[in-house]
Design a protein around this nucleic acid. Sequence first.
DNA 1: CTAGAAAGTGCCACCGGGTGGCATTTTTCG
DNA 2: CGAAAAATGCCACCCGGTGGCACTTTCTAG
Lengths: 205, 205
Amino acid sequence: MDAQEPSLREQKKALARAKTLDVAHKLFREKGFEQTTLEEICSEASISKRTFFRYFRDKESLIFPNRESRLEAFRMFLQAYGDAENPFEVLRLATEVFSREYNHNFDKILAQQTLIQSSPSLRAREAEIDRDWEIEIAAAFARRSGPGRQNELWAAVAAGAVMGVVRATMRQWFAHGCREDLNALGQMAIDSLERGFPERFVPGA
Amino acid sequence: MDAQEPSLREQKKALARAKTLDVAHKLFREKGFEQTTLEEICSEASISKRTFFRYFRDKESLIFPNRESRLEAFRMFLQAYGDAENPFEVLRLATEVFSREYNHNFDKILAQQTLIQSSPSLRAREAEIDRDWEIEIAAAFARRSGPGRQNELWAAVAAGAVMGVVRATMRQWFAHGCREDLNALGQMAIDSLERGFPERFVPGA
DNA sequence: CTAGAAAGTGCCACCGGGTGGCATTTTTCG
DNA sequence: CGAAAAATGCCACCCGGTGGCACTTTCTAG
């Protein structure tokens, strides 16, 4: 009993799945998400439409293939660094990690983001994913703030604020072609959350 | 030349539209959003499916029939009170207005919200609408913060934070059966944005 | 009042994403 | 090798949504 089960079956499945993803991304690049039909993808990937839906929940999942694993990783991250002095410290750390990753291959991410923005259904899916993350953050906050309605409320609202600024920051970054320092933008956003927002409206400050 | 044009044509259209909305809401209440088919709605409202799509963009629009007008009203509101001392003052005012309205017929709103949460496509549409509002808030903020990348950035991020806490607060309110004081919750959320978030994590406070 | 333009509606065929069901093939394992 | 199990393909089908065109209703001008 060495590794789990790289049985022939699993191998073929993984291969077919990967090929489908490749084909799909190629077609999406060439003619756009909505303009590409599932049957085109399937025929080019040599699988039947029925099988496609056994590999992927829906068409949108082709764009977010590892939604689950990324969420799980984030969950782990929050759990690992969840006992910092300041609850926002872990978010700063996360910001650093993610901005590094995003900056590293920003060209791919920018292309992907352009695709997402081109289709309502993809934007919707992205919002759904953001919601997952918000729930995770809220849970992490709630873990330290403890029980009680006030604390629970605080955790939910704070998590909402966090994901709110994260979304906005990323959009701004994208809107400027990913040329700004994402980490700096992110840390600034967290600063605002910690220290309060209106400060910058005071010209004297 | 008195009023505009309550021409016979317009009257009939408005009537048919209203009837369709009524029928749809009734059916949604009875069997749920996804379980209700457009053809059922159409046949019971005595219009053809083709005509339905001349009255409404899509099925989801039946749940948010006055999306445009509400957004427009909010836009006007921001413009009217946009020159307060503190930029968050107008948000406090808006919170008061909306919480009053929501509290007034919370039963209807709760039912509607339950419906929305029952269907992914409705949640998606709601998120889209929230995004509209966020854009409006960002524009209002940008109007006072003035030009320049830093200010622009600030406006977008602040607006993201605002809608983030608004969404979270409303969800919490719904989750507790709309029994809490929505205005109080809202004002608290804005407080947090203004004064900064981590304060409540300090047990000594 | 009437004829014809204009606006609105119904109908029908069609598309694309997604599902149920079952027969057929492929893989695994005794 | 042979049978159970897993995976696939195929087909018919549902539902939301669109294009196109014929038909009916309403408006307007003479």
